[in-house]
Design a binder for these strands. Sequence first.
DNA 1: TTGTAGGCGTTATCAA
DNA 2: TTGATAACGCCTACAA
Lengths: 337, 337
Amino acid sequence: MSVTIRDIARKLNLSITAVSRALDGYPDISAATREKVRQAALEMGYVPNRAARQLRRQKTDTIGYILPVSSPQHTESFHTVFMEGMSEEAAIHRYDLLISTAPPSSPEEQSIYQSWIQSHKVDGMIINRIQLHDWRVHYLAGQLFPFCALEDSGDDLDYPRVEVANQAGMTALVQHIHQQGYQRPAFIGGPVNLKIQQDRLQGYLDGLQITGLPYDPLLVETSDLTGISGYLACQRLLSSNFPPDAILCINDDVAFGVMRAIHETGLRVGRDIAVTGFDGLQESGFTTPSLTTVEQPVHEIGRELIRILLAEIQNQSAIERLRRITPSLQIRESTQK
Amino acid sequence: MSVTIRDIARKLNLSITAVSRALDGYPDISAATREKVRQAALEMGYVPNRAARQLRRQKTDTIGYILPVSSPQHTESFHTVFMEGMSEEAAIHRYDLLISTAPPSSPEEQSIYQSWIQSHKVDGMIINRIQLHDWRVHYLAGQLFPFCALEDSGDDLDYPRVEVANQAGMTALVQHIHQQGYQRPAFIGGPVNLKIQQDRLQGYLDGLQITGLPYDPLLVETSDLTGISGYLACQRLLSSNFPPDAILCINDDVAFGVMRAIHETGLRVGRDIAVTGFDGLQESGFTTPSLTTVEQPVHEIGRELIRILLAEIQNQSAIERLRRITPSLQIRESTQK
DNA sequence: TTGTAGGCGTTATCAA
DNA sequence: TTGATAACGCCTACAA
């Protein structure tokens, strides 16, 4: 099979202990032997067996993440960038990322959590798309299992996380479109129990208050965060007796669908109806017209989550357990008359 | 720590051997004990320790995939859907997906391959974005390590893979725009050594031949598959003395950038210049105007790759090792005058 | 500075 | 049908 520590020991007429210590850089071994061992290991192409090491150390050097997937084909492009960020940071620390998919809050999701944690498949978990009173937070905190979350579940628990100023970001958008002269902004949100929905909706309401624009419950619509659902929600809004002249969307994907729906009615995005997104995906700069949005450093957020989680796993209390991130307003064509 | 097979044995006054066999459903154990053991395991919340099992069985129930990442932020949305497909199919078979990122053909990539395979971290690999004479194919085939590839590396090796009819798809696009009355189609491709570049470029050339449209080397541009690079390539094309009246792009992301660039010059996509993509991403139906493209069942391709790989791992020679997939032409607004 | 020995939790071989 | 026992490859007291 593969080269093991034994093979090296045999070749050099050393005990496996000596080899093991030489490779792990323990100080109680002569420099000469250490060098000899390292050399041999390199030549023979030795790579430690993960399973054995894990069994012995009770650590896996692996971090788990469950891709939230609603309906197969409709996906938010947020995920790719997010995962790349996590994976990159993990790789730097020689950790791997273990991935599975499950619909949020499904039995599958629960069983994956249970199985990964109980069977020691991962050392820690990353949680995304958090919900109010998210069961995962309670479960993991209860098990004293290391994890790091994107956003807060609104419980009174203190756990490591990254928070984005969603509310303020949405409020800034309302102020911006108000300045541009739009009078009747609608909001297309997501599932009610999502934390970002709470925050962004509240930001919208705050914005109305600050600018003195009227609040009309008929102008609040719901999507499932995908382009398709944004498209449909927009059609509902436009068919009303007193349609909006601006549509603020919970994320960029929804906004893409909204722009499409507007285009199909013959109206012009910007001139007739303003549209805004949230996330600042690469594509948002390439739509026609380009999309005004709130840009989050998604890649960096992914990295930061991993950083905090690893510190948590290694019990480095030095690092901050709560990182707040301020997204930036990107003003583009979709909000110009 | 956690509940082990030992704890169950102790509780039931059985040997650990008996327990192990009962749980794995071996036939040489009385139905009564088997039930008793299963019951106890359930009650005690027993989950087998993966590391121990791996060490013993020399299998990991994990499949590896390396996300090809060029420059951090510019990403192809193809990946998310692809990974979802793989992850879903893997989950069905109770396999996990292990992910890392690395630039294609980089030293990092090589070291991940080596480390994962030598250290038995995964049972098989999925290869994407294959290049001509891809080193990974040679490496894995040389090691007799199970893998499954998307596309063929053009070597004379027989290995399990999924092939999409790229060439025919691109030819169909050329024929389509010719029918629509466009006379001077350009092609924006990707890195020369990519297999899809070879195929799609050849498809373009074939298309010219069939339709009798003239070939002009000045009309062939290069991108790195991202929207940004498509944007830039398009600017180069448009600034020429004799610009194209249609632009065929190697993928949808490039096409998005191209549409953006055209829009900025004041020209109209469709009426003035046709644009086509390749992949059939969700977003392609939502751009303005919507994008004519060749749709690949990306999700299904991901699943199929896993299916074939698992059969390979389990030495089920029953299953077909080569699956050919025919993509479908999606005619939309970007190619209507 | 080096070696011996035991064990991490499972599974497989063999004997009872 | 069940039970001892020995690995799988690595790490670490402890002893030499």
